[in-house]
Design a protein around this nucleic acid. Structure first.
Length: 510
RNA sequence: GAUUCCGUAGCUCAGUCGGUAGAGCAUUUGACUUUUAAUCAAAGGGUCCCGGGUUCGAGCCCCGGCGGAAUCACCA
């Protein structure tokens, strides 16, 4: 291994620390009793009549964290350490750190052998410096973990400007741990993502929904139209697919008698990667017996309004140039009205030839494998989709592109389906679910025809799913939310890689 | 998968017309007992992503590859 100058110095320092009889990776617990952010927010002191200070709290703290900066000042020293809540300054004095006249600990270990990046624990008392910085006056220091690689040094000045920011996306994503250490706003983004997920989970649990787990390894990759990853089970000697959706399993559970089930489903799709697609991603799906897609729209509004407030404290979310309001209710527009409004064409009564003609006039590329449904979807995607910035339900899709959806109660050729668009992107997809097993079998057979026509994303027939439906599937409504995209919206990130801790990358060679 | 752009010290970046490789931070040595982008003095640190080619001479020009980003296609 080729070591840099700084790595060699740190390895030498490690050996010197061992030579001093100090374990650079001690096993025993360190009794942390305070955190940087709490101390800085809550420390209090008063000035007495004689001018001396009376420190009121945090006079016996144990704090652990990573050294982020060192400033030597003669026989004293300042450090910034960073714990899970933020940074706080340490103040150390030579004559307080030794035993008697032996100042080895301060002169050698602290001044020479500790480096930026090392994890330490300190005991001491809190005070305010002359310049007003709340700091820990350290009386004891313990090395908890020696760092052998130098961190990127990011500096922030008094105005809050960042200097020498660690920005290279490749390094940030491949070494997310470093990104999280030196870029506090990255940590913020992920904390928000978890707040969002917690809010949704809380909402669903309070409504009486049941969180469940269903198979990731599936013999038939159902519930969506996408290319799957394929793997192999050795003992059974059969192929398995990583799930592209969990829809058909959740519906089986509704057959089994649960009224409302949900799952945050990690799905896998073997498709291109870009700033809105990662090969593995998270969809929240839930299915609710005896409800329809109108009820689902109202539930979606409630859930997202709460999620916005829980995540950002307000229903307004700033995304790039736009401010998006998640205040319920959301607009509802049928897909045909949306197309008419943004393309000028009324495609509601058109056959496949008419649709192909419209595509030609709009200069939309199509191929022979596309059926009526896919053509309509294409026209919508090219002309209308990007205009829906505020949350909008696009409703009543053509039957051809919705093989799992119940036919519309009053409009022939359509199904009871909506997609929720936000900032010009789809973030949810919901149906009044098809529960007629004869109809479902016919729809699957239509998919087989599409497959034969060359559509490699058409759905497989899942015979066990049909069997379950034949036992009697309660009417229900179901929905899927793109959780990563929701997280992007709520954290104002333009790239999915910014809301995934470890986005997929080409494997690194060492 | 296609196109465009990018790859120089641990990090962030300069590098002119093709002519001995530069800065700030970090590192090392020294000074400083309330500093905070600490300051002051000095020093060290490079497979210029990899491999070819052109040239007397390549970080720079040409070709191929690797990695990343953006746009497009597929998709959520």
């Amino acid at each position: 291994m080729q070591l840099s100058e700084q790595e060699i110095v740190r390895r030498e320092n490690l050996q010197k620390i061992k030579d001093l009889g100090i374990n650079p990776y001690p096993p025993e617990a360190f009794p942390v009793n305070a955190f940087a952010a709490d101390i800085k927010a809550n420390y209090k002191e008063e000035i007495l009549d004689d001018g001396t200070k009376n420190r009121l709290n945090y006079q016996d703290v144990c704090v652990a964290g990573r050294i982020m900066a060192q400033r030597e000042a003669g026989k004293a020293m300042f450090m910034n350490i960073q714990d899970s809540t933020g940074q706080i300054q340490l103040y150390l004095r030579r004559n307080e750190m030794g035993e008697g006249e032996d100042f080895t600990f301060f002169d050698v270990l602290i001044k020479k052998l500790l480096d930026i990046g090392d994890v330490i624990g300190v005991k001491g008392y809190v005070f305010n410096t002359k310049t007003g910085e709340t700091s820990i006056h350290v009386t004891e220091l313990k090395l908890l973990a020696k760092a052998l690689r130098p961190l990127p040094i990011v500096k922030r000045d008094a105005e809050g400007n960042v200097h020498d920011a660690f920005t290279d996306p490749e390094l940030r994503y491949r070494q997310r741990y470093v990104d999280l250490i030196v870029n506090p706003e990255v940590k913020e983004t992920f904390l928000k993502r978890t707040k969002l997920v917690n809010s949704i989970r809380q909402f669903l649990n309070e409504q009486g929904a049941l969180e469940v787990d269903t198979p990731v390894l599936q013999a038939i990759p159902g519930g969506a139209a996408a290319r799957p990853f394929i793997t192999h089970h050795n003992a059974l000697d059969v192929p398995f697919y990583l799930r592209i959706a969990n829809e058909l399993y959740l519906k089986r559970l509704i057959v089994g008698g649960f009224d409302w089930v949900y799952e945050f489903s990690r799905n896998f799709r073997n498709e291109g990667m870009d700033r809105t697609h990662n090969p593995e991603f998270t969809i929240l799906e839930f299915y609710v017996a005896y409800q329809d897609y109108f009820w689902m729209m109202e539930t979606t509004e409630k859930m997202l309004e709460k999620a916005a407030i829980d995540t950002n404290g307000t229903t307004d979310v700033k995304v790039g140039e736009n401010t998006i309001s998640f205040k319920a209710p959301f607009k509802r527009v049928s897909i045909f009205d949306a197309i008419k409004e943004h393309s000028g064409f009324d495609v509601s009564e058109m056959d496949e030839a008419g649709l192909r003609d419209v595509c030609k006039k709009l200069h939309i590329e199509v191929d022979k494998t596309m059926g009526k449904g896919k053509l309509i979807d294409e026209i919508f995607g090219e002309t209308a989709e990007k205009h829906f910035i505020q949350p909008t339900f696009i409703t009543d899709y053509p039957v051809e592109m919705s093989p799992l959806t119940k036919k519309h109660r009053s409009k022939s050729g359509l199904v009871e389906r909506f997609e929720l668009f936000c900032n010009g992107k789809e973030i949810a997809n919901a149906y009044t679910e098809l529960n007629d097993p004869i109809d479902q079998r016919e729809r699957f057979e239509e998919q087989v025809k599409l497959m034969e026509r060359g559509d490699d994303e058409a759905m497989f027939i899942d015979h066990d799913f049909l069997r379950a439906m034949e036992y009697g599937m309660p009417p229900m409504s179901g929905i899927g939310f793109g959780i990563d995209r929701l997280a992007m919206l709520f954290t104002n990130q333009a790239s999915i890689q910014e809301v995934l801790f470890f986005p997929q990358m080409r494997p690194e060679s060492f």
